[in-house]
Amino acid sequence: MTYAKVFLNGQLVMEHKGGYTPFKADVSRYLKYGADNQLVVYVDSSERMEIPPFGYVVDYLTYGGIYREVWLEFTEQVIVENCHVRTRNVLNPEKLLDLDLYLTNFAQQASTVDLEFSVLNEEQTIHQFQETVALTGENNQRLNIQQAISGVELWDTENPNLYTLEVKIKDYGHVIDQASFRFGFRQVEFKTDGFFLNGNRLKIRGLNRHQSFPYVGYAMPKRAQQKDAEILKQELGLNTVRLSHYPQSDHFLDRCDELGLLVFNEIPGWQHIGEQGEWWDTTLQHVEEMICKDWNRPSIFIWGVRINESEDCDALYQETNRLAKSLDDTRPTGG
């Protein structure tokens, strides 16, 4: 779980350091079309000095093996890689969708495509708009698209209203890729007199949560992950949970979005800061992977970009904060 390598047909495709954040591997260059292929994922669960949270002592158990979902994707040449859905002006009648859309162009050919956007409230489409964009021919391209929207409800701890943004890429009217992103309209802010959600002061009441369970460790299914969120919100009457001390299951976070349970999400670590170099680089990698995975979740109100209970390290934490703010300017950072 700590370290992984992906092989296809005996060829190394990529490696990844850390077992709490996701990664993708493009295996197409080693694929044998029309023949049998062998895909191997090598997982090293030993403690490695250059990979957080390791390097000294950790006060929580880190288990081995693959315990979260793994899947294969077959795609067209141009796909939606990700979309950062930022909601602006949420306290005004007319709100703003500020989208950073990330496209991958495997063919690396310049062309023009049509983008179709739909905002859904459950299954009902409440808003649609289109854009025609030029592909530059670069492998990765980011587009900023802004759209005014009204008639939507805010997300908060008592009324966790959720919406879905559907994005379709069309080439001469034919849909070549589509993706959906769930989000909520809300605003978070810390002031000298407290925490404010949608302009209303809210007292934070919460607990830490580890994702380990007796006898099975991290390997618990969707329903058990969801149940933990329900216990925190419905049985204990809390409004906040801190993910201690690493990013956790998407199933747990999905339920937090649905229940209105605020989340303090943080990078892997406990007290120890490794030597500058590979350990620091991997920490910055974890910051980016954590934020890019979860930046649309209305439940997450703060990014933990410091190693839990660590000493001050200005050089490292200036970089983690700078990176977090460059990726997401809608949330504060802490730790």
Rank of each mutant, 00 (worst) to 15 (best):
W71T: 01
W71A: 03
L72A: 05
F74S: 08
F74Q: 06
F74H: 06
T75W: 01
T75M: 05
T75L: 08
E76K: 13
Q77D: 13
Q77N: 13
Q77P: 10
V78A: 07
I79G: 03
I79C: 01
E81I: 05
E81C: 07
N82H: 03
N82A: 13
N82V: 04
N82S: 12
C83F: 05
H84F: 05
H84L: 03
R86K: 07
R86E: 04
R88F: 02
L91P: 01
E94F: 03
K95F: 05
L99S: 04
L99F: 07
D100R: 11
Y102I: 08
Y102P: 03
T104C: 05
N105H: 06
F106T: 00
Q108V: 07
Q108T: 10
Q109S: 12
A110N: 10
A110Y: 08
S111W: 09
T112F: 14
D114P: 10
D114A: 11
L115K: 12
L115W: 11
L115I: 13
F117M: 09
V119P: 02
V119E: 00
V119Y: 10
L120V: 09
N121K: 15
N121E: 13
E122M: 09
E122S: 15
E123T: 15
E123F: 12
Q124C: 08
Q124E: 15
Q124I: 11
I126W: 02
I126Y: 08
I126L: 03
H127M: 11
Q128R: 15
F129D: 13
F129V: 14
Q130V: 14
T132F: 11
V133I: 15
L135S: 07
L135E: 07
L135Y: 09
T136A: 11
T136V: 06
G137T: 08
E138C: 02
N139H: 11
N140K: 10
Q141P: 03
I145Y: 14
Q146H: 12
Q146W: 10
Q146I: 13
A148V: 10
I149K: 09
G151R: 02
V152G: 06
V152E: 06
L154G: 06
N159F: 08
P160C: 02
N161S: 07
Y163C: 01
Y163N: 01
L165C: 03
L165S: 07
L165P: 10
D171Y: 12
Y172F: 10
G173N: 09
V175A: 05
V175E: 12
I176A: 00
I176N: 02
D177Q: 02
D177M: 00
A179R: 08
S180L: 04
S180T: 13
F181S: 01
R182W: 02
F183H: 04
G184K: 02
F185R: 04
R186P: 00
V188L: 00
V188R: 00
E189Q: 06
F190V: 01
T192E: 04
T192S: 05
